[in-house]
Design a protein around this nucleic acid. Sequence first.
DNA 1: CCCTAATTGATTGTATACAAATTTATACCG
DNA 2: CGGTATAAATTTGTATACAATCAATTAGGG
Lengths: 217, 217
Amino acid sequence: MSGASEKAYVSIRNRLLGGEFPAGSRLSESELSESCGVSRTPVREALRRLAQEYFVRIEPNRGAFVIDWSRDDIMDMFEMRSMMEGLTARKAAERASMAQIDLMKAIIKRIDDVAEGGGPEMRDSFLTLNRQFHDTIFEASGSPKLTEIISRFVEQAVIVRTAAQYSAYDIVRSNQQHKELLSAIEKRNGMLAEIIMRSHILTAGERYHNNYMPNEA
Amino acid sequence: MSGASEKAYVSIRNRLLGGEFPAGSRLSESELSESCGVSRTPVREALRRLAQEYFVRIEPNRGAFVIDWSRDDIMDMFEMRSMMEGLTARKAAERASMAQIDLMKAIIKRIDDVAEGGGPEMRDSFLTLNRQFHDTIFEASGSPKLTEIISRFVEQAVIVRTAAQYSAYDIVRSNQQHKELLSAIEKRNGMLAEIIMRSHILTAGERYHNNYMPNEA
DNA sequence: CCCTAATTGATTGTATACAAATTTATACCG
DNA sequence: CGGTATAAATTTGTATACAATCAATTAGGG
């Protein structure tokens, strides 16, 4: 997956996220091949990968088309993600090691620092740390296969696209939920951890809904 | 995806399900290309597709390896599936049309007939009808994108592999749960429908666990 | 004798050429 | 003028040839 294939994948994916291709439009292999500077073979591979991540839909003998996501679709994805990550949180509460709990504590502290410090790179730092926190939960759940499937889901078009631009206040609020979640995990209260995680994801969905779709479109 | 690519996919998938390739073993593109009667190009495409369905894992520059699933992994998958299909059942209870409810009724009736009739094709008929029933729930949930994602999940290696060989008694029992589920949907009781569906899937998981892994392996 | 390094062999990754299918354009008929 | 059928052009699908990477083996040095 490295070399030309990866190059094509990154290029097309970035352009899709940048909104260069309108929803429903068709992606020509030849054109992509030219603009990516690789041959059609790795372009085809990249398109299949993007289809797996629901960026595009491939119709046999017709090509790749940019997938359109409705508001309802996106909220459904948040709901699904809330269930999936809720499940891992419950398992993490049952199985997390002390080292993993300490790591989560450290990440939470760093997120607080980031929110307090502010600055232009605040959001990027938060996204990275937030990702690390959730990955640690995955790790602590002790279900590698399950975790891989959910990670793949989180990599999907919608989820990636909805990586919201949090304000400092939003970050503090989100991190408060992290603290509550960690507390539940420390107490080995799986059910509580699950509910808190679901709430955590669903409130993120609500925030997205309010921020990015204030009016009917 | 038709033609040579589909041919390679079906061939490799069947052989994987038939246990021809041991877990962890490496799949050579050249050998598959030869045995499938197509060139390496569609074989590579088929392997990527099988990687998406978690039949194999592809390591860059190293090839495709048959994935091994532990008992815990499989039970995790049932748990995940129970949540996913529970979600669609809840939505179906809120949105199902009369025509869809009637269709489910008809399918339930046909499953009862199949169980009563017995015969050698009983299990195949049940699997088909059972699939139709669950697909109707998906359809009735009114969330096409969500449904597509879940359908893809159900197509995965583990789920397909665990399509258990039900006895006539098991079929009757499973169909009883279908009836309870449909009753909840008719009453527009989403929460009840969700719980019944989750129970339905999890009991299937238990049955698999008991039937196929009676002893520690 | 063991460990390291280079070379050989084999396998995956990429590019290109060709085949098949679809879309578009055009000519013909009603 | 509209509709259908045919034909050309474009695009995807497949096969093959070549390049790059990785595994194994062998040669060399300690």
